[in-house]
């Protein structure tokens, strides 16, 4: 009787262990499948892009169609300008709103604000482009660097706000109290003690936001619009790297395809280096600061 029971359990255990093994294999396989696209995309961009990388790419203007050579220096400069405009708008708004949420953010308004920043994160970037178009392009009657920068800033703001809030909330209350107990005003405590202590987290958030907007294309299609020349001021169209990659990729010209790959390689390296750099720094540097 006893033996039969043991035997039966042993048999069922063998089957259950086989199922267990099979599922484990499946999950490992799923992991390989999920990681594969990153490897493939990176590999193709490196292989196809490396050929087109030369000094011309970052120093020369685009050559006319059909002519060999030329570069997209204007797009690199344009992207830098757009990121600068976006940061100039988004950093003050995002950081101060983050300060509000972390230091004073209680009650219904703060809850609404948190919800709306989350909503803002989820809005498709093309929709942001439409809004920047109606708010800036239409009144100024021209596609412009300004409108592109504003579109990117709308994408940046929620990330900066929430990471600032998170970073400041991690600053221990005792640090705030130490400052207040010295007879230091609240605003000075926030600016001189709390923000510097949480700076690592804020910088991380800002860097991640910059990495994200440097690759954004959709909101620039009808704001920055693109250009084959150097920018002519904030109220004129301006080139941008991701925009140029898109326009070249859907063009029929082989030379342009090659340049698109080359620019893609530069953009990808920029984004990946920012991301990997930030992650390795945040894991070792900022956390071990004894905060």
């Amino acid at each position: 009787m006893q033996r039969a029971l043991v035997l039966r359990r042993t048999r069922s255990i063998t089957r259950r262990l086989i199922v267990d093994r099979a599922m484990a294999t499946l999950f490992a396989l799923a992991t390989v499948i999920a990681v594969a696209p990153l490897v493939l995309v990176v590999a193709y961009i490196v292989v196809n892009g490396v050929r087109g990388i030369d000094l011309d790419l970052v120093t020369k203007l685009p050559a006319p169609v059909g002519e060999a050579g030329g570069g997209m220096a204007n797009a690199f400069v344009g992207s830098a300008i757009l990121i600068a405009i976006a940061s100039a708008v988004a950093l003050p708004v995002g950081i101060l709103a983050g300060v509000y949420l972390s230091e004073f953010g209680r009650g219904r308004f703060a809850a609404t604000l948190r919800f709306l920043t989350d909503v803002l994160t989820g809005i498709p970037s093309i929709v942001v482009g439409i809004v920047a178009y109606t708010l800036v392009v239409v009144p100024f009657r021209s596609f412009s660097a300004l409108s592109g920068g504003l579109a990117l800033s709308i994408i940046m703001i929620p990330t900066v706000t929430r990471t600032t809030e998170e970073a400041l909330k991690r600053v221990p209350t005792t640090i705030r109290e130490a400052s207040l107990a010295l007879g230091v005003h609240e605003w000075k405590t926030v600016l001189r003690i709390v923000i510097p202590t949480g700076l690592g987290g804020i910088v991380t958030g800002v860097m991640l936001a910059i990495a994200r907007i440097s690759g954004e294309t959709a909101p620039l299609l009808f704001t920055a619009f693109g250009s084959s020349f150097w920018g002519e001021g904030p109220l004129k169209p301006i080139a941008a790297v991701p925009l140029q990659i898109f326009q070249y990729a859907i063009s029929p010209y082989k030379e342009w395809h090659d340049q698109a790959w080359a620019a893609a390689l530069v953009l990808m390296l920029f984004v990946l280096v920012l991301n990997v750099g930030i992650r390795s720094v945040t894991r070792t540097g900022f956390q071990s600061r004894g905060v």
Partner: peptide, 20 residues
């Protein structure tokens, strides 16, 4: 209260030097 706190010193349970 800010003035009050500058006349009275306080030392807390856990050492809390400003980390930065």
């Amino acid at each position: 209260p800010v003035l009050v706190r500058s006349m009275v010193g306080m030392v807390f349970q856990k050492p809390n030097p400003f980390p930065t």
